[in-house]
Computed example of a mutant assay.
Amino acid sequence: MPRRQHQDQGLFPCEAEVARRLSQDPVAWKAKALILERDGLPRIDPMMGARYWPAVQAYWNRRYGLSHVEASALDGQENLDAL
């Protein structure tokens, strides 16, 4: 059976897949990941042998200021009869 080019690797993708998802060369990603781990990038979980993908996404969201979602201000009383 031929191997698919992209295969969903779930919550703990291999490092090559993490690099692909982040548009990085796998070799360059290895060096960058070591530096980013000092800044809070989740480390490889020893039991699972990979990084927990939702935590990786959360790291990038925090890094770019997207982790705090604020409710929008109310703009007045709802009037459902207006529909």
Score class of each variant (00 low, 15 high):
70 E>D: 12
55 A>K: 08
30 K>M: 09
53 W>C: 00
11 L>R: 08
72 S>H: 10
69 V>H: 10
2 P>H: 06
18 V>E: 01
55 A>H: 00
61 N>S: 13
3 R>L: 11
1 M>C: 00
68 H>M: 07
63 R>W: 03
28 A>V: 10
33 A>G: 05
37 E>P: 03
54 P>C: 06
14 C>D: 14
65 G>R: 06
38 R>D: 11
42 P>I: 04
24 Q>N: 04
31 A>T: 08
70 E>S: 14
69 V>A: 10
57 Q>E: 15
13 P>F: 03
22 L>S: 05
32 K>D: 02
21 R>A: 06
51 R>Q: 04
19 A>T: 01
57 Q>F: 03
71 A>W: 07
4 R>M: 10
54 P>A: 07
50 A>Q: 06
60 W>Q: 00
43 R>C: 11
20 R>D: 01
76 G>C: 04
2 P>L: 11
45 D>L: 02
67 S>E: 14
79 N>C: 12
31 A>E: 05
28 A>S: 10
78 E>L: 14
7 Q>P: 01
12 F>R: 09
42 P>K: 02
66 L>T: 00
69 V>T: 14
34 L>A: 12
70 E>A: 13
69 V>R: 08
4 R>F: 14
43 R>Q: 12
22 L>F: 05
33 A>I: 03
67 S>Q: 13
59 Y>I: 05
76 G>W: 07
75 D>H: 09
77 Q>Y: 06
73 A>I: 11
21 R>G: 01
28 A>N: 03
69 V>E: 13
36 L>A: 13
6 H>E: 12
4 R>N: 09
55 A>S: 13
40 G>Q: 12
38 R>C: 07
2 P>S: 07
82 A>F: 15
63 R>T: 06
10 G>Q: 02
8 D>R: 05
42 P>A: 05
54 P>I: 00
41 L>C: 03
40 G>Y: 06
72 S>F: 14
11 L>M: 10
31 A>W: 04
33 A>N: 01
61 N>V: 00
78 E>Y: 10
69 V>L: 15
24 Q>K: 05
43 R>H: 12
7 Q>T: 13
29 W>M: 03
13 P>S: 08
29 W>N: 02
3 R>E: 11
17 E>D: 06
69 V>K: 08
44 I>N: 02
71 A>T: 12
7 Q>S: 15
33 A>L: 04
2 P>T: 04
44 I>L: 05
27 V>R: 11
5 Q>Y: 13
71 A>K: 15
64 Y>N: 10
64 Y>D: 07
51 R>M: 08
80 L>Q: 12
46 P>F: 00
80 L>C: 15
44 I>G: 02
77 Q>L: 14
29 W>F: 13
1 M>T: 09
25 D>Q: 05
23 S>L: 09
20 R>S: 05
1 M>Q: 05
21 R>Q: 10
29 W>S: 01
12 F>L: 10
22 L>Y: 05
61 N>D: 13
35 I>Q: 14
16 A>M: 02
46 P>N: 02
6 H>N: 09
79 N>E: 10
76 G>R: 04
41 L>Q: 01
5 Q>C: 07
32 K>S: 08
39 D>L: 11
16 A>K: 01
25 D>K: 06
39 D>Y: 08
67 S>G: 14
6 H>R: 07
32 K>N: 00
7 Q>K: 08
57 Q>R: 12
39 D>I: 03
81 D>R: 13
78 E>M: 07
25 D>W: 00
65 G>H: 03
4 R>A: 15
45 D>I: 03
80 L>I: 15
49 G>C: 00
81 D>E: 15
55 A>N: 02
51 R>G: 04
